[in-house]
C-alpha cells in the first residue's frame, strides 16, 4: 500500500510537471523524481518480500493494509515538506526576496 501511494503521488506530480511546469520553475519535476526514487526503492523491497512470502504477499490483513496506507500518506506529505523547503530556499520566482525588500523599505 505504501508503494501504491508513492506511485500514485509520482504519477500525479509527473502529470502536473508535464502540463504546468515543464521548465521546472516550481520544482515539480524535482518532486516527481523524489517520488519516483522512493517508488523504485519500495518496488525493490516489495519484490524481495514477494520472493519470501509468495502469494501471501497479496493477502495482507486489514490492519496491516491500513497502517501501510497511513504510512504511505505520511511519506507523501513528508515528500511535499521537502519540496516546500526546497522551493522556499531556492525562491525561483523571487517572491521571498521581493517580500523582504518590501519589509526593508
Amino acid at each position: 500500500m505504501t508503494l501504491l501511494t508513492a506511485v500514485l503521488a509520482a504519477i500525479i506530480t509527473t502529470i502536473i510537471w508535464y502540463q504546468k511546469d515543464s521548465r521546472n520553475e516550481m520544482k515539480t519535476g524535482t518532486l516527481s523524481l523524489i517520488y519516483w526514487g522512493a517508488s523504485l526503492m519500495w518496488l525493490t523491497d516489495a519484490v524481495f518480500e514477494y520472493v519470501q512470502l509468495q502469494t501471501e504477499y497479496f493477502k495482507p490483513s486489514p490492519a496491516d493494509l491500513l497502517n501501510d496506507f497511513f504510512l504511505g500518506i505520511c511519506a507523501v506529505v513528508f515528500g511535499l515538506l521537502l519540496w516546500l523547503i526546497l522551493v522556499l530556499l531556492k525562491d525561483p520566482k523571487g517572491v521571498i526576496k521581493q517580500a523582504l525588500e518590501n519589509i526593508r523599505n
Partner: peptide
C-alpha cells in the same frame, strides 16, 4: 534527486 529523495522517504519509513 531520485537517490536523495528516495533515501529520505525510506529513512522516514
Amino acid at each position: 534527486n531520485m537517490l536523495w529523495g528516495g533515501s529520505a522517504l525510506l529513512a522516514f519509513e
